[in-house]
């Protein structure tokens, strides 16, 4: 299928693993939504992968996760003196996670993963048909 650079399996395969990293971070964000901590620094902050294009000489491009960045959103302070984690003023900090945004992210990730699977399936079918050429 290819002479140099990425094959179709590289392009879609790497995109799938990047989307899987994105799904994993979303899952960990959602799992930590609603957790509380005794100080602002130790409170959970949501994470988000940063995607970067990787291009070969022939101009074909795939994607890779450049880094997993921590959100700038600040944890919310809540007065809850009965909480065993509360500090001396009776405050706890709730994890900085936007559950609605994370759910949207999850759906979008799943759809884009499916798109890549579809591309791979079609390409595989076409390659198989090409192999059977003349038989």
């Amino acid at each position: 299928m290819t002479m140099s650079g990425f094959s179709i399996f590289d392009i879609s395969g790497r995109a799938m693993s990047a989307q899987l990293v994105r799904l994993n971070t979303t899952a960990s964000n959602l799992a930590n939504a609603g957790t509380v901590a005794g100080s602002e620094t130790s409170a959970f902050r949501s994470m988000k992968p940063v995607f970067r294009t990787v291009m070969d000489d022939a101009g074909r491009a795939t994607v890779q996760v450049d880094q997993v960045a921590t959100s700038k959103m600040a944890p919310t302070k809540r007065y809850d003196p009965n909480n065993p984690l509360a500090d001396k003023d009776g405050n706890v900090w709730e994890a900085a996670v936007d559950s609605a945004a994370e759910l949207v992210e999850m759906v979008e990730t799943a759809r884009q993963y499916q798109n890549n699977v579809q591309v791979l399936e079609t390409a595989k079918g076409l390659i198989n048909e090409t192999l059977r050429l003349g038989q």
Partner: peptide
């Protein structure tokens, strides 16, 4: 062309692509 379109689909979530 299939490779190029696959690249586009792979980069659907990459900023500035």
């Amino acid at each position: 062309r299939m490779m190029l379109i696959a690249s586009n689909i792979a980069n659907a979530a990459t900023p500035n692509y």
